[in-house]
């Protein structure tokens, strides 16, 4: 603890003494910038994608702390502590927080935010972040800023609205700014040679009013959709679940890609709900996004149009997807995709 405290003191005191009375006055009016990055974990394993919160926190400047809670969090905390530029990891070990139930996780965060006197709190705009952070914001009487893609300064943020069809720049006047970030806009920080202190957080032990019953997660050896560098996505054109699996999965395997789907494909039962890409599903921005049998409705484009390279295979030459695709192939996907799969395999 002490080295960290000295470091905080040192970095704060330096400029104050140097610049004299006016700087001192300014700093008294305004708290020093300090950010709490919320890290996700599961069964003691740190969700590495949640380290994006550190990247955003570092962009803000000021001190950066991390927060992790669950039944066994020491390994996850140690791993996060290796991220350079992070001062402290606050860990709360209690089975009650393992599933991230908002009814007790939100008061837990509120207590730790108050104790640390943070000016900013950042979490990913993930299922967890979306569930918990607004509850935290309400308890702190702060208007959350959701799904930001860029940080101008400590109070000015950029976020997409209308399914990404407009980009809003907003300025927050709240003393504590609760923020969720779009993961694809902030690359996860990598644990390297950092040596943040791991400290025990406050545990108010609030009761959860909900009980976690069960979960059913799609198991797959393929890369995770949200963070994959390549994504192949299928749409209504695949016709059935059997065809979806027969055509799309070998292509995904040949490319080492994650599998995504349009809403039409998900609604028709061709693919699992969790694979939906779009405004209401996942937002992805891989190096390569290959859209197969997807027309390109605005809700779908909302989830993938920041991909580096977009390829499309569709039999309708007028499909809107071709307006955003870097390379398009007009043709029957049942012929073209297997041919493509073979050519990728043999190259």
């Amino acid at each position: 603890m002490f080295p960290t405290a000295r470091r905080v003191l040192g970095s704060a005191a330096g400029p104050l003494l140097g610049r004299g009375a006016s700087a001192l006055g300014r700093c008294r009016r305004r708290r020093l910038l300090s950010t709490l990055a919320i890290l996700e974990q599961r069964d003691g394993q740190l969700n590495l994608a949640s380290l994006s919160a550190f990247t955003a926190a570092k962009k803000l400047g000021g001190t950066v702390h991390g927060f992790v809670a669950g039944s066994k969090v020491s390994a996850a905390a140690e791993q996060a502590a290796k991220v350079d530029g992070v001062e402290q990891i606050i860990a709360v070990e209690n089975e009650a927080y393992e599933k991230g139930l908002p009814e007790n996780y939100a008061p837990l965060l509120v207590e730790n935010i108050k104790k640390g006197n943070y000016t900013h709190v950042i979490s990913g705009h993930t299922a967890f972040g979306k569930n918990v952070l607004p509850r935290v914001a309400a308890l702190l009487d702060s208007q959350q800023i959701s799904d930001i893609t860029s940080i101008h300064d400590e109070k000015t943020f950029v976020r997409p609205i209308y399914a990404g069809n407009a980009i809003a720049t907003v300025e927050s006047s709240d003393p504590v700014r609760i923020i969720t970030i779009r993961g694809t806009a902030f690359a996860p920080a990598t644990p390297e040679s950092g040596s943040a202190a791991v400290v025990r957080g406050v545990d108010p032990k609030p009761e959860s009013m909900t009980e976690w019953v069960s979960e059913d997660l799609a198991k797959s050896d393929r890369p995770d959709l949200a963070t994959a560098s390549k994504v192949v996505a299928g749409g209504r054109g695949l016709k059935s679940k059997e065809d979806f699996d027969r055509v799309m999965l070998p292509l995904a395997d040949a490319l080492g890609a994650a599998v995504g789907a349009s809403r039409a494909a998900v609604d028709s039962g061709y693919a699992d709900n969790s694979l939906q890409v779009g405004q209401t599903g996942k937002v992805v921005a891989p190096q390569l996004y290959m859209a197969v049998g997807i027309s390109g409705a605005i809700q779908h484009l909302a989830g993938m149009k920041d991909s580096k390279v977009i390829a499309a295979i569709n039999k309708d030459a007028d499909a809107p997807i071709f307006q955003v695709a870097d390379v398009g192939l007009v043709g029957d996907l049942f012929e073209k995709v297997p041919e493509l799969t073979e050519k990728i395999k043999s190259s």
Binding site: T126, F128, E211, W212, A218, N273, S274
Partner: peptide, 12 residues
Amino acid sequence: REVDGGVETVRA
């Protein structure tokens, strides 16, 4: 509930 990677069931 629809969550990242699948579904989760809670009771309240």
